[in-house]
Amino acid sequence: MTFSDWIAEPVNWVFAAIGLAVLFSGFRVVTSKNVVHAALYLVGALAGTAGLFLLMSAEFVAWVLVLVYIGAVIVLFLFGIMITRAPTGLDESLSSDQTAMPALLSAAVFVVMTWASIDAFGTELLATVGEATSTQVIGESLLGRFVIPFEVVSFVLLAALIGGITIARRDLTPVEEEERMSV
């Protein structure tokens, strides 16, 4: 398939546009010197990814991405930045001086991964995108075939929740502790 064939498909225009937007947002997440901006660019990257899932008729995954990641995780991120009184403005210390080696390494990993992916899947065409997997099927397999990982994940979340609170909370000073003991 040549490039002119590829670009003749309207769906590929959408794909290209979203892909470039995700690429740009992802790049800005890393290079942004303002932590709030970085979080907002992450919203862009995630929204674009959700768009890519929609293109593949995986609407459930797409909306989960929007609801959970954009709706909850990023918002928590911003709350976290506000509540911990972290600097929200321009922060020079966020950027490290050592950029050459990591950039080189990332570029090398990118080249290897792209080459391997093109080699493995490059000529394969996605057959006309089939019927969308219904949410019912996903729900049933989560509580049937995949019930063990599904339940075990809840313990990962429970542990993260409780451990996170314990690490983040302010410890009582010895005086306060005395007061609490005597009550």
Binding site: P149, V152, V153, V156, A159, G163, G164, T166
Partner: peptide, 12 residues
Amino acid sequence: IGIELVTGPLYL
């Protein structure tokens, strides 16, 4: 999931 549940709590 198993290996993440082993290491996740240990980070904390």
